[in-house]
Design a protein around this nucleic acid. Structure first.
Lengths: 233, 233
DNA sequence: CCCTTCTAACTGTGATCGCAGTAGGTAGAA
DNA sequence: TTCTACCTACTGCGATCACAGTTAGAAGGG
């Protein structure tokens, strides 16, 4: 038997500093992923107890997680009633749209000089994957689209900015899936191609312009759909 | 005795739609105000039970509120240890600074065409109040500064944007008070004056430039202070 | 057959309790 | 006097319980 390893030696092995993971955070992260991926449709209601039973934990951490999600605007909680995924009003959607144009365009611009060669390759691979002649499952299409965008936002290397953007996607995730499902609108081919080009050319202005166009083009369809929904109701 | 008022009649009196106010939200709002106003210094620790006893409620809603505040980045929670007000690293401060330049400048620009005459007057009154020859208590100075900025951000009429900006101020509030206290630096006179002028002239570009300058000028001093702190430690 | 009314189940919120882990203060030894 | 080791008080987290309000569905009357 040799002596036990010292703390510094253990830390040098890249071991996490323990970082006690709480149930609360786990549930929160899971639900966040569930919402942002759009697997929950607007109007879908979530009950604390039911969720807790499903996840096999007590209602307590679930309650906390739901409250935090409601804070983010990803859920709406009516008094003494179930939480549910909100259907954004056209006005709310425009608020989000304007914020996306500000934050995501800024992030994309900042990312340009920081993108690693691997990130560039990954961007290009995703792009060709998304718009391949072979038809793609809507779920994986949206998933790829999300990965494409967040490669850029992550490269911008501003944790808080990334979190803000995620919060915005959290609010349009369910909508995105729903609308794409009903209108089969898969926009973004040209803007994405332009982004790939701008990224390789380290052309920050081009990147910003393309990102802006991508966001706006997708928004037009959704906004029309939302207005139609509001008029018929 | 006349008949009781109907629901519609009551609602027409501008009564709140009941909107059951939870202890959780009350505590959260109170703490948020406490942090953003800078009355809590970085390093200050907050214990759930102590706070609960002080506020006369059970620890439960306090815990919830603290978790939400930690989510916002206004508090940091070490594992199994007290929550406390974080001292931002220079890197973190720069992240916040860049976000402020993006969001607050955009908000100020959007606000220009929307400012009411009352808001314009209020802006001017605050401005002259802040930089009056008579020396002003630091607390009220900062409070006025905050009100000045948020008149603009509120006028931009984007709830989500406003909330993002508040989240940023939540993270620099304690720092602002602390640094101002130690360096007695009260910047912003010229930029604020320029903002008032731009607002009256409905000059969006001028507003954006002045806001940008205001944020940057204040940041320079704080950043120097932070670097000094990091070197001595 | 349809509409109204009432009840029973379910909702989130808040309080209280038990647990595992941390930290600071105190007592003992060198 | 100084350093070390222990120990008590306190920390947040999770579970369970009690409560008031809501709602959907069933039962009864028209």
């Amino acid at each position: 038997m040799t002596r036990a390893l010292g703390q510094d030696e253990l830390r040098s092995l890249d071991l996490q500093p323990a970082e006690r993971v709480t149930l609360n955070d786990t549930v929160y992260a899971d639900l966040r992923e569930l919402v942002i991926s759009g697997r929950l449709a607007p109007g879908q209601s979530l009950s604390t107890r039911t969720l807790a039973a499903t996840l096999g934990v007590s209602p307590m951490p679930v309650r906390s997680a739901l409250q935090r999600l409601a804070d983010d605007g990803a859920l709406e909680g009516r008094p003494n009633r179930t939480y549910r995924i909100p259907m954004p009003s056209p006005r709310a959607f425009i608020e989000i749209l304007r914020l996306r144009l500000v934050l995501e365009v800024a992030a994309a611009r900042q990312a340009v000089p920081l993108l690693s060669p691997q990130a560039l390759d990954r961007l290009e691979r995703i792009h060709s994957g998304m718009y391949d002649p072979v038809p793609l499952d809507l779920g994986t299409f949206l998933s790829l689209n999300r990965e494409f965008h967040f490669i850029l936002y992550t490269a911008a290397d501003n944790m808080r900015q990334l979190r803000f953007i995620e919060t915005l996607w959290l609010q349009i995730g369910p909508l995105l899936r729903l609308v794409s499902n009903e209108t089969d609108g898969r926009t973004g081919q040209e803007p994405h191609g332009e982004m790939v080009r701008a990224a390789r050319a380290r052309d920050a202005a081009g990147m910003a312009a393309a990102m802006s166009r991508d966001i706006e083009e997708a928004a037009v369809g959704i906004l029309a759909w939302l207005h139609a929904l509001n008029n018929q109701a």
